[in-house]
Design a protein around this nucleic acid. Structure first.
Lengths: 178, 178
DNA sequence: AAGATTACCTTGGTCGGCCAAGTAATGCGC
DNA sequence: GCGCATTACTTGGCCGACCAAGGTAATCTT
């Protein structure tokens, strides 16, 4: 069908065995570098990469059921459990049983956890600027658009297992008095 | 315009606390989804995500010093050590001491390891197409370009620790008789 | 030639992340 | 009311990935 030309457009020094997947390669590399950069920022704050996203949802929603976090973060339940155990031990999060449903757990950020809010925000802003340095507004918009499409694609192909359908989050300000 | 759906054009329902870092968010999500998709393909082959990149370099270069792999993959030495231990145990890789430098280890793919080559290649091609579905050539090129810039940015900021300078790989065909 | 430095790899620890099972509570059908 | 599926979370195991430290061998310095 479509001429399967070796679309090695203009890629630097790919592992070369990675012909056939230059973009996959690029995304892996970018993601890892991004994660490292994030990790560096977060470590000085007291979080590990990944935890900040959970905390963000918590700051956002006040208290949340664990299952809700799982859905929002699109993570494995066990991942969230362990993450919460560590965050709880670190004192950033508190869990309490839901009186309405005795198998569910309600999660909320502690005061210590809320204190991180600003710093995390700042770190993310910094990181964003670092990441996008040298890209003008149009390029940023285009990048966002393309990544959106890609995400949708991957979501769809992964959809077999878990739907990526998450209802729009309703940002309500509870939890952290801000 | 084959408008598939009102798919998250701009930005879906960001954790909202992630204002200030929408792109960082997007890249994280894309990377995770991509990794999951890759993992699904690879698992059926017998590899775990991440290992395929190492194998690619091996297929590419024949035998390589471990330090070389570390530089090419830009990974932590300990990561590569453990990965190799597992790959070795799985029978895909063989390590031998370098006679020229008794502290170095030479790594090469076994026959079993080389057998995976084709299938991995195929998996990556599939994944690439899944990922980029719906993007025309121009969009793909643009995405590649933008990701390249982003990678350079992140590399630079991470450069403090490890330089991202990797000399152009010289694809030589050794190792797997192919 | 002896000592300091650097390079190469390993070990041990921690985290995020997945899967596969397992436990407990809720809800549904009967 | 009773049993069964569903939901909610936990546990254990595994892997990739990081850091921090350590041990050994080559190289550089003096």
């Amino acid at each position: 069908m479509t001429s399967d030309e070796p679309v090695c457009t203009d890629f630097p020094h790919l592992p070369s065995a990675a012909r056939g997947g230059p973009f996959s390669h690029a995304v892996s590399r970018v993601a890892r570098l991004h994660r490292i950069a994030a990790g560096r920022q977060l470590r000085s704050i007291g979080l590990y990469p990944g935890q900040e996203l959970l905390m963000m949802h918590l700051w956002d929603a006040g208290a949340a059921r664990q299952s809700e976090l799982i859905k929002l973060l699109e993570l494995d339940p066990s991942t969230v459990t362990k993450m919460l155990q560590r965050l709880e031990q670190a004192g950033y999060v508190r869990r309490s049983p839901d009186p309405k449903d005795r198998r569910a757990a309600l999660v909320e950020a502690t005061d210590d956890g809320c204190v991180l809010h600003e710093r995390v925000q700042q770190a993310w802003t910094d990181l964003e600027e670092q990441t996008l340095a040298g890209l003008d507004a149009a390029e940023r918009a285009e990048l966002a658009r393309l990544l959106g499409k890609v995400e949708a694609n991957l979501c769809r192909s992964a959809g077999a297992a878990a739907d990526c359908e998450a209802e729009p989050s309703c940002p309500s300000e509870a939890g952290c008095g801000e």
